[in-house]
């Protein structure tokens, strides 16, 4: 009797435990569902679909017509226009990342000591964060424009010949780089300023007492301490640079002579102007792979370059 009772009791306990577990899982589902469904519909599904398209020939309506496996990728590698676009993108990304990180670090170093007005100057340096792609492009468009543009007026004052920023092959990419770097500076500057502030002052004081030179202080103390942030800033800048579109669209439309035809602009043209969805999808996947590569490399590197303390 006793035994029977206890085992029945046991069953009840087990039952409620199961119920409890089910309830918890339902709750979790309920909380996660909105995000999960929207990520599914607007990220995972389209990603798979893009991969799928990249293996098809498509018609002008964007419908897949014929499965061709990886041939789109092979064709792309032999496509001179695309390869040039890819090369341009690499140069662009490299220059933007380098210039942004170095100048942001320089700006952060200049404002690293608390003097009267430092905060004001920091606000100035960070202000480009509030400028959007189209506003920045329009502002620089005016600077770059021929004859009445600010650049030409300054060059004229210095008795230098005018530069056809947006119509000269040699300068056009640099014009876009300049615009993008200018826009990026605000964020990178703020991030690095924060990192510099976190370096413990006594480290510099010890160095001062020991007579360590300014360069050694920078190279052996500052740089190692801020390297995680420097990496972070570099990667974010790099990934954003890969995805640059608006500045090209507003400043140069990819020209002259495709000299500023960055990969995203090429994707846009293929998808929405040339209506070649198969090709555009293939290019998108190539871009995605490039960005994944950068992200993974950053992960590995930060792991290696341990966080100190």
């Amino acid at each position: 009797m006793d035994h029977a009772f206890s085992s029945a009791n046991h069953a009840v306990v087990k039952h409620t435990q199961l119920q409890q577990k089910l309830k918890t899982h339902l709750a979790a589902m309920g909380f996660i569902a909105p995000s999960a469904i929207f990520l599914g519909v607007f990220v995972f599904y389209p990603l798979v679909k893009t991969v799928y398209y990249s293996m098809f020939l498509t018609n002008a309506l964007g419908q897949p017509v014929k499965f061709i496996g990886l041939s789109n990728y092979g064709t792309l590698l032999q496509d001179k226009f695309f390869m040039k676009s890819l090369l341009t993108t690499f140069i662009f990304v490299f220059m933007v990342t380098l210039l942004t990180t170095v100048s942001a670090l320089a700006l952060a170093m200049v404002t690293s000591k608390h003097l009267k007005g430092t905060t004001l100057f920091r606000t100035f340096f960070a202000s480009t964060m509030g400028v959007s792609v189209s506003v920045a492009s329009v502002l620089w468009l005016f600077i770059f424009q021929p004859t009445t543009g600010v650049s030409d007026m300054v060059l004229n004052l210095l008795h230098l010949p005018p530069i056809h920023w947006l119509t000269d092959n040699t300068w056009s990419l640099f014009a876009v780089i300049l615009t993008v770097v200018w826009m990026n500076l605000g964020f990178s500057f703020l991030a690095l300023t924060g990192a510099l502030e976190n370096v413990a002052t006594p480290l510099y004081e010890v160095a001062d007492i020991e007579g360590v030179t300014t360069w050694h202080k920078f190279y052996h103390i500052t740089l190692p301490q801020i390297s995680p942030t420097l990496f972070f800033v570099g990667t974010v800048t790099m990934i954003n640079a890969f995805q640059t579109f608006g500045q090209v669209d507003l400043l140069t439309k990819g020209g002259p002579n495709n000299s500023t035809n960055l990969i995203v602009y090429q994707i846009y043209k293929d998808a929405f102007v040339n209506l070649n969805v198969g090709k555009a999808s293939t290019e998108s996947i190539v871009l995605a792979l490039l960005i994944a590569l950068v992200t993974i490399a950053q992960f590995k590197l930060t792991e290696k370059r341990v966080m100190y303390q």
Partner: peptide, 16 residues
Amino acid sequence: TMMLPFESQLIPNFQT
């Protein structure tokens, strides 16, 4: 999904 560029979802999203 944070590492996926939006461009890789652009066309299907447009179609959806």
